[in-house]
Nucleic acid binder design. Sequence first.
DNA 1: GTTCATAATGTTATAATATAACATTATAGT
DNA 2: ACTATAATGTTATATTATAACATTATGAAC
Lengths: 166, 166
Amino acid sequence: MTPSAAFMDTGHDHDLCMESALDRASALCGERGVRLTPLRRRVLELVWVGHKPLGAYEILDTLKAERQGAAPPTVYRALDFLLQHGLVHRIESLNSFVGCPDPLKPHGGQFLICRSCGLTAELNDHRIDQAIRNSANKAGFTVGRPMIEIEGLCPHCRDAGEGSPG
Amino acid sequence: MTPSAAFMDTGHDHDLCMESALDRASALCGERGVRLTPLRRRVLELVWVGHKPLGAYEILDTLKAERQGAAPPTVYRALDFLLQHGLVHRIESLNSFVGCPDPLKPHGGQFLICRSCGLTAELNDHRIDQAIRNSANKAGFTVGRPMIEIEGLCPHCRDAGEGSPG
DNA sequence: GTTCATAATGTTATAATATAACATTATAGT
DNA sequence: ACTATAATGTTATATTATAACATTATGAAC
Ligand SMILES: [Zn+2]
Ligand SMILES: [Zn+2]
Ligand SMILES: [Zn+2]
Ligand SMILES: [Zn+2]
């Protein structure tokens, strides 16, 4: 299973998952001649701690415990850098940030977001993209970044019946 | 041309466009036994002033000039009501609100948003929806509300060349 | 290795968006 | 009119994000 295929199995090797994400980030920055500084790397690491989007101030809380004088700009600047290089995505509906498993090619995000547990999976379905481009073209619209955020229930929470009763 | 088909022609009869939106809202609220109070109606009207999403505080600025003591809760409560009844959509990427031309059947929004002029068009393309559901189903995900926000250039701004140089 | 330009981060303050909590007023049914 | 409920008023505050300027770190030129 590739990292971007669907929801991460709860039993997947997340240490490896994170490590490879950081390695990819390091390689990408090297190729582009930009610096993955310790701060930026740490913020990326924090975003990758789970497959759940993290708010800027949640990241900040952790940074504050580690660095003297961490403040909002500390984290927002690191996030801006990571966003610019496609290393993280912003989840607009949650004002939160999540690591991108495939930063090399630019793309708007296609996200499945569990309303119960917060787990998020990134899709990259060409057919969704194609359907969007077809429809946009008909309207005479030039597509820039399509952003898709689908709220719902992940397999685990669906099976646990967290959707019907609540 | 139906209201939800694509970008409104700059020459369309927007007075009629707004009036019919308000009439539909009035009818919908009547059928549901809920009250489209003067405040709620006015907020809906303001949202419909253009086909550009409007921020809560922009709405508030106008309300303040009309009502004594309008405050953030004034507008957010009205917007909550309108959102609940599908009369407006929230554009997550802009923290803004736009009128829905088809409030009767519940749907996540499919929006084309011009980065140059701000004009927004709501699609309701079943094929996009279907592509999303197919992909989500493969991931074992139960779809709630799919939200699609596509940044790009509207026909007018594309023709004016507002995308290439900037 | 010193100098310099630039990039990155630190620091303080504030802007922009949104909600909590409680008081008051309007509405609709009895 | 009385009452329960819904809607709005009012004040305060929470949450998210950026502006502006000072300081420090980095890497290239000499
Ligand atoms: Zn993982
Ligand atoms: Zn991605
Ligand atoms: Zn119109
Ligand atoms: Zn709509």
